[in-house]
Design a protein around this nucleic acid. Structure first.
Length: 370
RNA sequence: GCGGUAUUGGUGAAGUGGUUAACACGCCGGAUUGUGGCUCCGGUAUGCAUGGGUUCGAUCCCCAUAUUCCGCC
């Protein structure tokens, strides 16, 4: 079945919404944070550990799974859920972000995008149709339209051409979308340009998707102000009965700000990436566990955190693991960081329910320093 | 005991009679936002075993001492 978004409550003082999304793999609460599992695994974590941090939707990536192991193999395995043994909802990114991170602007044509494989350098060609067909076979619960994720610093002219092409790509992808169990999201682009966001949002909504994303943010040194503009310029044109997904975000403060502006879904590699590099989120800000000051710190990362890492291990121990390059260090930090962001969304949902989101934000910033 | 050899930061080491003593690792910081990359970017010896001497100037030359390693008795 397609997903179904239920709007439960609109916060009195902000644009925040409390809701649920019904999926093939259970009901999830929004606003929510979705951990990223690019290559059909949230790096270092088992599904059991994901359930343990209360993960709902997780991401996987079309481009990466297309190259290895290939969508046909995943299909043969019985789809992504069976293949990776994850019994929660899965969203697949379309490969649009890889247009930004791996391809050059000159490789982007009306028909599709020419890539060089990051693995062996072989020539690849990804089109909107191909991306959707791959995602159909992967059998994720939510597929994303194949878009161009232009750099935030793109000129107005470039951005305008890009969003128009992305709209044509969205229509082409929707046309070939053929998996009845799978929902399909459209993506709004347009940088921090008000009229382009408006145009992109209205035209994307006309194509009638199961949910809408705001893309192209938090890249290329985009300022916070521009990111908030991108959200504010897009949200008014998105329907209330569909989920809104801010792609690639983010940092704890960005999640707070996004929720206040009406975002329901977030994903980000940050919690797992910084974990692998020895960093942990805390309510006081990010810490680097490798810092010498934690050498003899025999307390948990956060003493009131309910995650497996904080219930069982000290900073001194995790620091040691990270320093000697033992993978358990990265695992424990990943568990903590994902739990941290999910717990943040749990608290935000409580605050929305009680119409005290602005107070929550104030409290959040009083503690959180970066 | 005699002869030779070497002694450079936390470690392994390059190097030169004359501005700021390579590089690597380690250590100390930082970055990271729809994940190609346990990656990237900084900082880290006011001193070249110790004490004398030669020289305008010595880590680099000479002498002594200590220690290292290799021969010989």
């Amino acid at each position: 079945m397609k997903i179904k978004y239920n709007l439960l409550h609109e916060e009195k003082n902000t644009k925040a919404r409390l809701g649920t999304i019904e999926t093939n793999y259970g009901v999830v609460d929004t606003p929510m944070f979705m951990p990223v599992g690019t290559r059909a695994t949230v790096k270092m974590l088992t599904p059991e550990e994901l359930y343990d941090v209360h993960s709902g939707v997780i991401l996987a990536n079309t481009y990466h799974l297309w190259l290895r192991p290939g969508e046909d193999l995943v299909e043969k395995a019985g789809g992504l859920h069976k293949f990776m043994n994850y019994h929660g909802p899965i969203l697949t990114d379309s490969g649009g972000f890889q247009v930004f991170s791996l391809a050059n602007p000159k490789d982007i044509t009306e028909e599709g995008v020419h890539f060089k494989s990051h693995i062996d350098g072989s020539k690849l060609f990804l089109t909107p149709e191909k991306s959707i067909q791959i995602q159909n076979k992967l059998d994720s619960d939510i597929a994303m339209s194949f878009d161009e994720c232009p750099p935030a610093s793109a000129t107005y002219e470039y951005m305008k051409n890009s969003i128009e092409r992305t709209l044509r790509w969205a229509a082409r992808g929707k046309k070939v979308h053929a998996n009845p169990r799978q929902s399909l999201f459209g993506i709004v682009q347009g940088g921090a340009y008000e009229d382009l966001r408006k145009f992109s949002a209205t035209e994307t909504v006309k194509l009638d998707f199961d949910g809408y994303s705001i893309g192209g943010v938090a890249n290329d040194n985009e300022s916070k102000e521009d990111m908030y503009k991108a959200i504010d310029y897009s949200i008014p044109y998105l329907p209330k009965d569909k989920p809104r997904y801010l792609m690639g975000v983010g940092e704890p403060s960005d999640i707070v700000e996004g929720v206040i502006r009406g975002i329901d879904m977030f994903d980000c590699v940050l919690p797992t990436r910084i974990a692998r590099h020895g960093n942990a989120f805390t309510k006081h800000g990010k810490i680097n566990i490798k810092n010498a000051k934690y050498k003899e710190d025999f307390t948990p990362i956060e003493k009131d955190c309910d995650c497996y890492a904080c219930r069982n291990y000290t900073k001194a121990y995790i620091r040691h693991l990270v320093n000697v390059d033992e993978s358990l260090g990265g695992r424990l930090l990943s568990i903590h960081n994902i739990r941290f962001l999910i717990r943040l969304t749990e608290e935000l949902r409580e605050a929305i329910k009680e119409d005290r989101l602005l107070e929550y934000r104030e409290e959040f910033y009083k503690n959180y320093h970066e």
